[in-house]
Amino acid sequence: MNKIISLEAAAAQVASESTLALGGMTLYRRPMAFVRALLRRFRQTGEPNNLTLLTFTGSLETDLLIGAGMVRRLRSCYCGFEAFGLAPMFTYYANHSEIEVMEETEGSLSMGLRAQMSGVGFMPGRGWLGTDLPRLRPDVKTVADPYSGETLMAFPAIRPDVAVLHALDADQEGNVVLGANRGVDEELALTSKVCIVTSEKISPLLEKADLTAPVIPWVALAEKGALPTSCHPYYPMDGEAIMSYLDQVSDPKSFAAFLQQWL
């Protein structure tokens, strides 16, 4: 079965009000070409809107979608540019209480994804105990260990509607090579209802894969599709492009000017 589609067709898979998960971590192997296609679609049609965006550690991709006004809720444990500084549009809208943040930590996201992968409703853990985090997330309940009686946090299963990952290589059947640094890409592929892979190249049938055809319904070609984030071993992060974004963008007006030019 040929699963190859265009980036535009990939972007058309995301419905308004849905939960969209994006693969990679902060500035590494983010599906930027897909994000660009999604932003173009939104500019032309006003859709998709009111998204819940799930980004394990959000950065440029998250900031762009928030800046464009497509995101109602961010579900993440981090949004920023690491050593480069704060994420300007996330910070702006969060400071103005105009975006809902579903507060997570790396542990809670890992456990919620693991629950979904295992086909159970939650994963128990000792995270968050003693902190202010449970107060912000009344939906995360506690559970008593039936053997010891110990109270544990019950991190609920996470099920994205659509996950989009950027890969090093893929074939038309949907077999995919991610490379050594996988972040939570495997988890997102196995937990989402639909997983779309954008890939640096499309090869004849692969003989070795990190993700296999049964879990990948769609593949889109996106050469240099992670830039300006990095895609080892093909290209490093474009630090100047990252810094240029942070230099130019500080509020909705400067963001609009940037986006106009970037698209």
């Binding site: 444990c77 969060a94 400071n95 209480s97 000792r126």
Partner: peptide
């Protein structure tokens, strides 16, 4: 006031788990 912060920070990342464990 969490809902109306003076400054929103990037968030926990994995710090919560490191601090606890």
């Amino acid at each position: 006031d969490y809902a109306h912060p003076k400054v929103r920070l990037p968030g926990s990342g994995g710090a919560q788990e490191i601090a606890a464990w």
